[in-house]
């Protein structure tokens, strides 16, 4: 393609091609701290014109690559950065086989990982981003990669995808404006801005951590903490995994080890500060 970039995030290397210059330039700048040397990529993502002439006339981006959703709707070029991020997520979700992949955020402290999973809007991304600014190592806001051999969580610290009210919340937390990507209004997921993770997240993105606590956060409900049984955790994590079925027996063993070795709690909260306070208290109880 006319413009391209090779990018390593955690254990995965992507080659991203684009018919337009801008999305690649944005990616190159926002991922400046990540390895960008050429090499054999695990996945290819292509941002293509959605039809004849659509490179110029009402430019519209179709996300293509090794793994594709044939019915996915094209996106406006002004949302090209989001399209590239979605393309990378799609490759991981549909093609990654080296780890059990859980749709979850994760952070690390003292060599142990906190994993948070939940529906869109649960706050797992924002909480991981907040914790990443408050003494925890940010490991990822989208996928937790569980090692099939030893059960450790491997980082996948791509840009944090902040949605709607989270954008303003993180602007208060992060004073360095250069860490924010452009605010993209009216995307299919609402208003979105990307945040570059703290330097420690990239510098240590090869370091896995043993999982110590699994949370199912839920934003917008009165403060509450409930234990989650192993059976429920197993069932919910199979639903939150994009490759559990594809991994077969290895996925079964890995998930069994995870739910029997990691305590799980459902946490309801009404504000980010309240959640951080709860998490600090729960983490202190663990040790």
């Amino acid at each position: 393609m006319r413009h391209s970039l090779t990018l390593t995030i955690g254990p995965a290397r992507f080659r991203i091609g684009s018919a337009w210059k801008e999305p690649i330039a944005r990616l190159r700048a926002l991922y400046a701290a990540y390895p960008q040397e050429e090499g054999v990529a695990d996945f290819t993502v292509r941002l293509e014109p959605a039809g004849v002439g659509r490179r110029w006339w009402r430019p519209s981006v179709r996300i293509a690559g090794d793994h594709m959703l044939p019915d996915a709707l094209p996106m406006a070029l002004r949302h090209g950065l989001l399209a590239a991020e979605m393309g990378m997520n799609l490759q991981m979700a549909l093609g990654w086989r080296r780890h059990l992949l859980i749709h979850a955020s994760s952070v690390e402290k003292d060599g142990r990982a906190l994993v948070m999973t939940g529906e869109s809007g649960s706050g797992k991304s924002t909480l991981a981003a907040l914790l990443g600014e408050r003494g925890w190592r940010f490991m990822g806001d989208e996928f937790a990669l569980i090692d099939l051999a030893d059960g450790k969580v491997h980082p996948f610290p791509r840009l944090v995808s902040l949605k709607n009210a989270s954008v303003a919340a993180m602007r208060v937390e992060v004073v360095d404006g250069a860490r924010f990507g452009p605010l993209m209004r009216g995307t299919p997921k609402g208003d979105i801005a990307h945040l570059v993770p703290p330097a420690a997240a990239t510098a240590r993105m090869g370091e896995a951590a043993a999982p110590a606590l699994l949370l199912f956060p839920r934003y917008g409900f009165a403060r509450d903490i409930r234990p989650v049984g192993q059976g429920e955790a197993f069932m919910r994590l199979t639903q939150a995994s994009t490759n559990y079925v594809a991994l077969g027996e290895a996925g079964f063993e890995t998930l069994h080890r995870f739910v029997t070795g990691v305590p799980a709690l459902a946490v309801d909260y009404e504000s980010g500060e309240e959640a951080l306070e709860l998490i600090d208290a729960l983490w202190a109880d663990l040790s």
Binding site: G231, T238, G248, E249, F252, H256, V259, T260
Partner: peptide, 21 residues
């Protein structure tokens, strides 16, 4: 392949690749 969790039995059925609780 059988595993215990919380008083439940997890069964992974190799021919189908399905997990049963």
């Amino acid at each position: 392949l059988l595993r215990q969790i919380d008083g439940l039995m997890l069964a992974y059925h190799r021919p189908s690749g399905l997990t049963h609780m």
